[in-house]
Design a protein around this nucleic acid. Sequence first.
DNA 1: GGCTTGCTTCGAGTGCACTCCAAGCCGTTA
DNA 2: TAACGGCTTGGAGTGCACTCGAAGCAAGCC
Lengths: 153, 153
Amino acid sequence: MTALASFEAELRTCWDVFRDPVGAPDRTPRHTIGEVSAASGLTAHTLRWYERIGLLDPVDRSASGQRRYSDADLHRLAFLGRLRLTGMPVADMLRYVELAREGERTSGDRRDLLLAHREAVRQQIADLHATLAVLDHKIDVYNGRLARCAASH
Amino acid sequence: MTALASFEAELRTCWDVFRDPVGAPDRTPRHTIGEVSAASGLTAHTLRWYERIGLLDPVDRSASGQRRYSDADLHRLAFLGRLRLTGMPVADMLRYVELAREGERTSGDRRDLLLAHREAVRQQIADLHATLAVLDHKIDVYNGRLARCAASH
DNA sequence: GGCTTGCTTCGAGTGCACTCCAAGCCGTTA
DNA sequence: TAACGGCTTGGAGTGCACTCGAAGCAAGCC
């Protein structure tokens, strides 16, 4: 079963790797841009653009020059996607990967960047919950279950 | 005490009204654009722009032509600000207020709009929590408390 | 062979949400 | 009275994050 699991791990689809980017990624270039696009939700255009601006390291190419993404690329992309989805500006993401390229000595800076983003994320969660309460109330009003004391705004 | 409370309610500052927009708002135009800007976090430019595109009804003016916002304006603005803060596009906010202007018969549409946004908000909260978990893990790694199995991405 | 699909390049274009500018008016403070 | 800060306008400008176009190459399939 262990043998099977590790065998299957080698065959994980692009989608699976992206959705659950754990463990040591292998660096075999094997995913096409179309697969990565489908898995990540980013368009092929956006994936190329990320590479152009330096968010991704130059991706390996097939014999005919087409991009082949490795699991390691997918891991990075999955993390960057999370940062992006939660509102980090591309410029900050770029700063993070550039620090990472400089190696170990920048780990403090990177940690600080993530700490700051974590605070931003917490703030967003608080804002969203507060808004959820307002929405729940207004929807109740629209459903006619409560007095419509505030329905005009 | 009731008399005092209602007396003070008349005197609520722009900031207070914006932060806690409850009860029947009075329509006396009394807040300057600068006050509203400070209370709402929106710039004066943005407030004028919101009015220009129809998100706010035409605001009352002083004798010399300057804007004077009423508590009712602040209530609407507070709600719109929440929608905006939680990612609703300006176009959708506009649709909402235009429906509201059409009166009672559009209340179903408005409710649907809010229902859809509530779903979007819930989705955002889920995404943020998932990212928080990833950030917590990575920050632990950077703090050296865990094996650095994923520090390269 | 011919068709479809997907990929390549990079500069230009798009959409959103502000954000600013210039010229001038108004009310208050020194 | 003179300066100062805040307010007015419409239109133009900005920054971000994509998003697309055009021309062409390559692989898979009937």
